[in-house]
Amino acid sequence: MVTKKEEFIARMRKQVDELNYRWSRERDKFEAGLQHASADAGKEYEVKRQAYLKFRKDLKEKIVDLEVAGENAWDDLKDGVEDAWKSLATAFDKATSHFKK
């Protein structure tokens, strides 16, 4: 029987995988366009990319923490994972909306 914890972890992993796929597609477009952009645009892209990567790393670490947490503690950690997801999604949205201009 699958527990609520396992369902939550599976859902979060799926969301991260889907966002990583979208990031890879968008990143390729951005980097191709940067060849013809200013140096400032390249620097700004790098700042946004690093922010996204940091939030992604943080979320992955929180998911691992959640996996090893006991059944009683996982509910407390769940909020942190959800907050990390929101931060990652926001970083993605900011990066993609900025570079689609």
Rank of each mutant, 00 (worst) to 15 (best):
Q15W: 02
L19Y: 02
A89W: 07
D40C: 03
K54N: 04
D28H: 05
Q35F: 06
A32H: 08
A10I: 07
Q15I: 01
A95C: 12
V47G: 01
E26Q: 04
L19R: 08
A37P: 02
G70M: 04
K5D: 05
W85D: 02
R56P: 01
K94S: 09
E61Q: 08
K78Q: 15
W74L: 07
R13H: 04
F92G: 05
K101R: 14
A32L: 14
F8D: 05
L88G: 05
G33K: 07
D75L: 15
E46G: 02
R11G: 05
A95V: 06
G42R: 14
E7I: 11
A95S: 14
M12D: 00
A89Q: 12
D76T: 13
K86T: 12
Q50N: 13
S24D: 03
K100M: 12
H98M: 03
L53S: 09
Q50C: 03
K101E: 15
K100T: 10
G70E: 12
G42Y: 02
R27F: 00
H36N: 15
D17K: 11
V68Q: 05
Q35Y: 06
Y21C: 00
R56D: 08
F99R: 03
L88F: 09
K62Y: 10
F99S: 03
T90A: 08
K48A: 13
D17G: 02
E67N: 06
K29Y: 07
E71K: 15
A10R: 15
D65R: 12
K100L: 11
S97L: 10
A41S: 13
R49L: 12
G42A: 07
D83F: 11
L53I: 09
A10G: 04
I63E: 02
D58N: 09
E71C: 06
R13G: 00
E7K: 15
S38V: 05
V2R: 15
S24C: 00
E18I: 00
K101D: 15
K29E: 10
K54F: 05
A84P: 02
D58P: 00
A32Q: 07
L77K: 14
D65P: 01
K94R: 12
A32K: 12
D93N: 13
K4D: 15
A41E: 10
R49H: 10
E7L: 14
E6M: 12
E82W: 05
K14W: 02
G42F: 01
R11P: 00
Y52A: 07
A95M: 15
Q50A: 08
V64I: 08
I9S: 06
V81N: 08
L77M: 13
T90H: 08
A89V: 12
K57M: 07
A73G: 05
I9F: 06
K86L: 11
A32I: 08
K54E: 11
G70F: 08
K101V: 09
R13C: 01
R56M: 06
M1E: 13
E26R: 03
V81D: 04
W74S: 06
A51L: 15
F99G: 03
L88D: 07
K4I: 08
E71F: 11
E26Y: 05
E67W: 06
F55G: 01
K62I: 02
G70Y: 08
Q35N: 09
E26D: 00
E44K: 10
K43P: 00
G33L: 06
L88Q: 06
E31D: 00
F92D: 04
A73K: 15
F92I: 03
R27Y: 01
K100D: 14
V47T: 09
